[in-house]
Amino acid sequence: MYSTRSSKILFFHITIISLFSFSIVKPIQAEPYGMAGCGLGSMVPVWKNDIGQVLAATTNVSFSSQTFGITSGTSNCTNDGIVKQKMAQEVFIAYNEGPLELETTKGSGERIRAMASLLGCPTHANELGKLMKEKHSYLFAKSNLENEFRSKEILVRLKSQIALDDSLKYICKN
């Protein structure tokens, strides 16, 4: 197929091109994500302009990727203070209010375990579930507040009940 001379020339060209390619590569740096925040939408590099931020925010809301990213530390979300713990708790309640309320009637479930983690007491999810079951009607009392304010109201009520509980008030510190 190839003569020895052709093989050497081909090898030489590939070597030169490879060396040239490696010499011009810049280190990859993470760009700050925009006003839409972290989540799946922040991972699309072309969505850095104003319209892109709207698309990023829509993607985050549509797939709940921001909530998942905040709780799991993925999708450009971090747990090092970029997203405050209280905000993460409020966002979690806002996006999971219905299923969380349903699990609260049983006193256990995935969302109660996640809430326990967000409150800083992941090993005491059973106790938190029991408390939430006992105080269900108080925690999820109906109100005319918009979802954003309702999640804050539920969180304040939950934290007030934790503060009154003899065992959880020393464990759940967030």
Score class of each variant (00 low, 15 high):
residue 49 N to S: 11
residue 54 V to W: 11
residue 47 W to K: 00
residue 106 K to E: 10
residue 35 M to G: 09
residue 57 A to V: 01
residue 91 V to H: 05
residue 38 C to V: 03
residue 41 G to Q: 02
residue 88 A to E: 08
residue 100 L to R: 02
residue 92 F to E: 11
residue 21 S to E: 01
residue 102 L to D: 09
residue 101 E to K: 15
residue 90 E to K: 10
residue 86 K to M: 03
residue 74 T to K: 07
residue 59 T to V: 15
residue 105 T to P: 00
residue 41 G to N: 06
residue 83 V to R: 02
residue 96 N to T: 08
residue 23 S to M: 12
residue 86 K to I: 07
residue 39 G to Q: 00
residue 62 S to W: 06
residue 63 F to S: 15
residue 79 N to Y: 06
residue 62 S to T: 11
residue 29 Q to A: 10
residue 74 T to M: 11
residue 80 D to N: 12
residue 67 T to N: 13
residue 16 I to G: 04
residue 11 F to Y: 09
residue 27 P to D: 11
residue 16 I to A: 15
residue 94 A to Y: 12
residue 15 T to R: 04
residue 29 Q to M: 10
residue 31 E to A: 15
residue 99 P to I: 13
residue 99 P to T: 06
residue 48 K to Y: 02
residue 32 P to N: 14
residue 73 G to F: 05
residue 10 L to C: 02
residue 27 P to L: 09
residue 84 K to W: 03
residue 58 T to Q: 12
residue 80 D to C: 00
residue 76 N to P: 01
residue 82 I to T: 13
residue 13 H to G: 15
residue 95 Y to H: 10
residue 95 Y to M: 14
residue 56 A to Q: 00
residue 103 E to M: 02
residue 13 H to M: 15
residue 55 L to T: 00
residue 100 L to F: 04
residue 39 G to C: 00
residue 71 T to W: 07
residue 60 N to Q: 08
residue 23 S to C: 09
residue 83 V to G: 05
residue 24 I to C: 13
residue 18 S to Y: 05
residue 81 G to Q: 06
residue 9 I to V: 15
residue 69 G to Q: 07
residue 83 V to D: 09
residue 94 A to G: 05
residue 20 F to Y: 12
residue 65 S to P: 06
residue 56 A to D: 01
residue 42 S to K: 04
residue 104 T to Q: 01
residue 15 T to A: 15
residue 30 A to R: 11
residue 30 A to L: 09
residue 77 C to Q: 05
residue 53 Q to N: 15
residue 26 K to N: 14
residue 79 N to K: 15
residue 106 K to D: 08
residue 69 G to S: 10
residue 106 K to P: 00
residue 74 T to R: 06
residue 93 I to S: 00
residue 35 M to A: 12
residue 10 L to R: 08
residue 70 I to L: 15
residue 60 N to Y: 07
residue 94 A to V: 03
residue 46 V to K: 08
residue 40 L to D: 01
residue 94 A to H: 08
residue 93 I to P: 04
residue 16 I to E: 01
residue 86 K to A: 06
residue 66 Q to S: 08
residue 97 E to L: 14
residue 80 D to F: 05
residue 29 Q to K: 10
residue 34 G to C: 04
residue 80 D to Q: 09
residue 63 F to K: 09
residue 69 G to A: 05
residue 49 N to G: 12
residue 51 I to F: 14
residue 16 I to K: 04
residue 62 S to Q: 10
residue 38 C to Y: 02
residue 73 G to N: 06
residue 46 V to H: 08
residue 19 L to T: 12
residue 50 D to N: 14
residue 93 I to T: 01
residue 34 G to N: 05
residue 82 I to N: 10
residue 27 P to H: 09
residue 61 V to A: 11
residue 72 S to Y: 07
residue 75 S to R: 06
residue 50 D to H: 03
residue 31 E to T: 11
residue 25 V to C: 07
residue 38 C to L: 03
residue 47 W to D: 06
residue 11 F to T: 15
residue 59 T to M: 14
residue 77 C to R: 01
residue 90 E to Y: 06
residue 61 V to E: 14
residue 36 A to E: 03
residue 36 A to T: 03
residue 76 N to S: 14
residue 70 I to K: 12
residue 67 T to K: 07
residue 62 S to K: 13
residue 63 F to Y: 14
residue 63 F to L: 15
residue 11 F to L: 15
residue 69 G to H: 05
residue 50 D to E: 14
